[in-house]
């Protein structure tokens, strides 16, 4: 089933003048897909993401989420229930001073009975591996832990789509790994549709599909491997290759018989293999 359909959506923060933050994007995301969205600063990724859960309504075009048009105010609540969003700064999305109260916020808003909220908290914290912190104070947790709590807060509403807007940007490598692992698990085990906005190319490699935005338009769309093999084009849009892919490319240019590796492990294997041959 189609989870998200954007039909030539445009969005201008200021009406009138012709500068669109998102300028005519057509995009379809299937249920269960893991899509990475890439693009330099100001390319319109966040604006696009906010149109998917009706935080922003397209100035032109239509955004359809599970068959519901975001422009219709009657749909807003349903859409937000099915499309959860995790933001960049974990500190700015926590509403309560205790983990379980924070996770309860979403379920409370949709009016669930108490017992069900309790179950949802248990489920959500378990899914992000934070059950032991149920009565902890978020401000004392690490960045990665805080962000996992934010994910749990979204999960507790049982959305079918999860949008993460640079949710790993403020984390150290360990925190990034934690968040990525949780998201991948949700995608694989629960069939959660994931839209993952990131500046880390290595993270994009873990997605099924990558979309590159540039000046409010989608300019590339394909598997991460396809995208990263078009490195000249990427450079034009202000993006770099994943580190391993870059090194691999340079080694190949220098005459080493490697190529096509995108991840550090693959590259290491290739180098070892080529060294053994020599």
């Amino acid at each position: 089933m189609e989870a998200v359909r954007l039909e030539n959506v445009k969005f201008a923060y200021r009406e009138g003048e012709g500068s669109y933050a998102v300028n005519g994007v057509t995009l379809s995301v299937e249920e269960g897909e893991f899509v990475a969205v890439l693009g330099r600063n100001g390319s319109g990724k966040s604006t696009l993401a906010k149109m998917i859960n009706a935080l922003l309504i397209p100035t032109e075009g239509r955004a359809i989420v599970f068959g519901l048009d975001t422009a219709d105010e009657k749909n807003t609540f349903e859409i937000r229930k099915s499309a959860g969003m995790v933001f960049q700064n974990p500190d700015n999305q926590t509403v309560a001073s205790i983990v379980e109260d924070d996770v309860a916020f979403g379920p409370e808003n949709i009016g669930l009975p108490r017992e069900e909220i309790g179950r949802r908290i248990g489920f959500a914290l378990d899914a992000v591996g934070m059950s032991a912190f149920r009565s902890a104070t978020p401000s004392r947790l690490s960045g990665g832990q805080k962000q996992r709590i934010a994910i749990a807060g979204v999960l507790a509403v049982l959305p079918k789509i999860m949008i993460l807007d640079e949710s790993t940007a403020m984390l150290d490598p360990k925190g990034r790994r934690e968040v990525m692992d949780v998201v991948k698990k949700l995608n694989k085990e629960r069939g959660m549709t994931v839209i993952f906005i990131t500046h880390f190319m290595d993270e994009a490699l873990e997605a099924d599909r990558a979309v590159v935005m540039h000046r409010g338009e989608t300019v590339m769309d394909g598997t991460p491997r396809e995208i990263f093999s078009r490195s000249d084009e990427l450079e034009m849009y202000g993006l770099a290759l994943p580190r391993a892919a870059y090194i691999s490319k340079k080694l190949a240019e220098g005459g080493m018989p490697v190529g096509g590796a995108f991840r550090a492990e693959d590259l290491a294997e290739e180098i070892c293999a080529s060294l053994q041959k020599a």
């Binding site: 906010k50 859960n53 937000r80 933001f87 700064n89 999305q93 509403v95 916020f105 979403g106 808003n109």
Partner: peptide, 13 residues
């Protein structure tokens, strides 16, 4: 502003 967005996104009404 961020918090407002996050609350909206979590179905606060």
């Amino acid at each position: 502003e961020d918090l407002g967005d996050a609350m909206d996104a979590r179905c606060y009404s």
